[in-house]
């Protein structure tokens, strides 16, 4: 867990499907300053994993902080984490609290 986020959870999502299958909203300079999961698509890697939930806020992706990142930057980091062949999983540090 993150040192400053005692309620955070580390979720490892295996790349078990061709898509990650989440929709996110938020980012720096919006009403939702950290990216939040708004949809989990059935059949995607995130859904298969079973541990990510709608409403969770993403704090880190593969150890990279989402703080201060605008929406497109956060989305790009998540997309690249899923696309890279260096790992067969993506690690999300998430929290239920906004």
């Amino acid at each position: 867990p993150g040192l400053l986020e005692p309620t955070s959870t580390l979720v490892r999502v295996a790349k078990s499907a061709g898509t990650l299958g989440i929709a996110i909203e938020g980012g720096a300079n919006t009403r939702q300053p950290l990216p939040r999961i708004v949809t989990i698509q059935r059949g995607g890697s995130a859904h298969n994993c079973g541990q990510l939930k709608v409403g969770q806020v993403i704090l880190e992706v593969n150890g990279v902080s989402m703080r201060g990142r605008e929406h497109r930057d956060a989305a790009r980091i998540i997309a690249e984490a899923f696309k890279t062949k260096e790992r067969d999983h993506v690690d999300f540090l998430v929290t239920e609290f906004n």
């Binding site: 929709a23 009403r31 929406h71």
Partner: peptide, 15 residues
């Protein structure tokens, strides 16, 4: 007058 009320909503991206 809260600052957060003046911030725009975010777009949504499917990943």
């Amino acid at each position: 007058r809260e600052k957060r009320l003046t911030l725009p909503p975010s777009e949504i991206t499917l990943l």
